[in-house]
Simulated assay, not measured.
Amino acid sequence: MTSSQGSAGRWSDLDRPPLNAAALRHALVLPDGLWTSLDVVESTGSTNSDLAARAAELPEGAVLVAEEQLHGRGRLDRTWTAPARSGLFVSVLLKPDVPVHRWGWLTLLTGVAAASGLSKAAGVDLSLKWPNDLLVKIAGEERKTGGILAERAGEDGIVVGIGINVSLRAEELPVPAAGSLALAGAVSTDRDTLLRAVLRSLEQWYGDWVRADGDPDASGLLVAYGTACATLGRRVRADLPGERMLEGVAVGIDGDGRLVVETEGGGTEAVAAGDIVHLRAA
């Protein structure tokens, strides 16, 4: 971790004020709430790795936020980098008391919660690309502005990491397909407001899901994800494990959270893991 006192140059961007950790804890860490602690660090390698390393000693609901993440990770070991204080880099520790075979829904649940919370707080329409990307539209083009990574932590825990590009400018985007809430016309890029909205939405969706014993249908998650998912109805290419490729139309999400693809021959195949490329509308 670094000291902001010794790095004035890095912290001199007045458009990117630091998070107010005390105010966030006051608003989110409540006696009967899900969130049990909230820590903000100036810089770290990966909030997911840090939280996972302490999962055994922490209760459910621990939240770790970084102003800067140096070695953030996405699916398939991709890196996630962004300037300091330009986004939300947050991980939460969950210990769901639901059947383990339903834990795969946590990535999709977090996507629904983040998209819902950010849409209200930032005034930007967000959609979901299966399984874990958050999309915005910039000049009519879909751009990735966020991602989610869920990882097992011990026998009973899952660390869910959320990375959101908030104030990135065009010249700061890591790749042409990336975007940010600011570039999508957000009415607010106040990260305190956005983080509160995301965590409150996640608390509500997670609570409903746990109370439904992880059932995506009974909790309303299946319908909500299908409504927000930009992948459905699209022609897609799935790059699958073992260097196999599948092409067809994404027609649904099954009860296990898998993407159902209708192939050229009229059959369907459920994709549990893979890299999905949107080709065009069906």
Rank of each mutant, 00 (worst) to 15 (best):
T145S: 10
Y225S: 04
P17D: 12
N132C: 07
I164E: 02
D275Q: 15
A218Y: 09
D39M: 11
G146A: 10
D32K: 09
S7W: 15
A21V: 12
L168C: 05
L28I: 07
T263K: 13
P18H: 12
D156I: 09
A52E: 00
I158K: 01
R152N: 04
T263F: 10
G157M: 02
A53E: 05
P59E: 11
G242T: 10
R237Y: 10
A153Y: 00
R244I: 12
D125K: 13
V251K: 02
R244P: 06
G72Q: 04
A224P: 03
D190Y: 09
V92H: 00
M1V: 13
G61V: 04
A182Q: 11
D190N: 13
D50Q: 07
T145F: 08
A66P: 01
I164L: 14
G87T: 06
A212E: 06
G214D: 03
S127R: 12
D254M: 07
G154R: 06
N132E: 07
L108R: 04
N20V: 13
S37N: 10
L279A: 09
T110K: 01
R196V: 14
R102M: 10
D156F: 10
V40G: 03
S46H: 00
R54N: 07
V175P: 06
V65P: 00
R244D: 14
V41C: 03
V63A: 02
L259Y: 04
V187A: 15
G6W: 11
A62R: 00
P17L: 14
A282F: 12
P17W: 11
